[in-house]
């Protein structure tokens, strides 16, 4: 943003003694900025590093105060134990199903709705878009209680009752509680996704669509063949957000999942509660007892946390470059 200014100053043609004074000033500014960036990077990287270091510590040396960054002895005990307590293979499979289908459905439905708002004129358009904003603003906890009962005795607004012999189905503890609203563009933070897609599509030039229309392409074919391939950056942003939010979701999962196998975030919270009580048993086997030191507890907890953030972290590492670039090009806001 200050590029224009900077170019102006650095251009020899414009340099005069008055403007030269800015050079010392800009040196201090740069130094100041560098210090800030280092400090903030520390603040952002610290939890990650701390988590990884603590997770791989040996239980025997976990309470050694001289160990801050480099463990004296590495051990997988924490990770293995946390894997067992979180029932990671089962809970991660459940969370992966929720994330995969929830994200898939959200992306398809929100792209369609966003395109509808961006490219067509119809009466009361602005009023209807306020409804989208409303789904962002109204907090989940106001509707989650009646949603809980609705999913427990789900009949799709009375439609299922029309089929003889079928009264209602129980959707609690299934991935449907996330996927079903996502199909209808009202899933997890879908209002925001509709907003992002609308912003993106309305920023695209109309020429391509008009050309396609003239060549006899219908509106749906135009959308799928022309607009979707163009919307790469918007799709990357929405997919990454949606995957992360589905995977990390705690509030909805804690209410909709009542069985033993819950999404990873809930399992982690349960583990933390069990550890703070001082003891935990699972299937009759004592995992922690009152004499487990708080250092070991810390180790188990960090190992569990590491397992739970690993999938989104890996996804971020691989898509990071693509993601940061697309954020610039999506133009989230007007």
């Amino acid at each position: 943003m200050f590029e224009a200014t900077k170019d102006f100053f650095e251009n020899k043609k414009y340099q005069n003694p008055y403007l030269m004074k800015n050079k010392t000033k800009s040196f201090f500014f740069k130094l100041f900025r560098l210090l800030f960036i280092i400090g903030l990077s520390y603040l952002f990287l610290f939890p990650l590093l701390y988590m990884i270091v603590t997770a791989f510590q040996d239980p025997a040396t976990a309470n050694d105060p001289s160990v801050i960054w480099i463990p004296k002895k590495l051990s997988l005990a924490g990770v293995v134990n946390a894997w067992y307590c979180l029932r990671f293979s089962e809970s991660a499979t459940l969370t992966a199903i929720i994330t995969l289908f929830g994200t898939g459905a959200s992306v398809v439905s929100c792209a369609m709705v966003g395109y509808g708002f961006a490219r067509f004129e119809f009466p009361l358009k602005n009023v209807i878009f306020i409804l989208v904003i409303l789904t962002i603003i109204v907090p989940t906890q106001t509707i989650i209680m009646s949603q809980y009962l609705n999913y427990w005795f789900f009949d799709f607004g009375g439609i299922l009752k029309l089929i003889p012999g079928l009264k209602n189905v129980n959707l609690l503890n299934t991935a449907w509680v996330f996927v079903l609203p996502a199909i209808f563009a009202t899933g997890l933070r879908n209002g925001l996704f509709i907003f992002i897609f609308r912003q993106f599509f309305s920023g695209q030039p109309k020429d391509l669509e008009e050309a396609a229309r003239i060549d006899g392409c219908g509106p749906f074919k135009t959308f799928v063949r022309i607009m979707v391939p163009l919307a790469g950056p918007a799709f990357v942003t929405v997919i990454l957000f949606s995957v992360v939010w589905h995977w990390n979701d705690y509030y909805n999962s804690a209410i909709y999942f009542t069985n033993d196998i819950k999404p990873v975030s809930c399992m982690l919270s349960n583990l933390s509660d069990a550890l703070s009580m001082g003891s935990a048993t699972m299937d009759g086997k004592v995992l922690f007892s009152r004499d487990t030191t708080r250092y070991a507890i810390r180790m188990y907890l960090m190992a569990g946390t590491m397992l739970s953030v690993l999938p989104p972290l890996l996804l971020y590492l691989f898509t990071q470059k693509f993601f940061t670039e697309s954020i610039e090009r999506t133009g989230l806001v007007g």
């Binding site: 209807i128 209808f184 009202t186």
Partner: peptide, 15 residues
């Protein structure tokens, strides 16, 4: 446009 936005109308009502 209504066909594109239809999923949202249904979702807004039911969910």
């Amino acid at each position: 446009a209504q066909i594109f936005i239809l999923p949202f109308y249904l979702g807004f009502w039911f969910f």
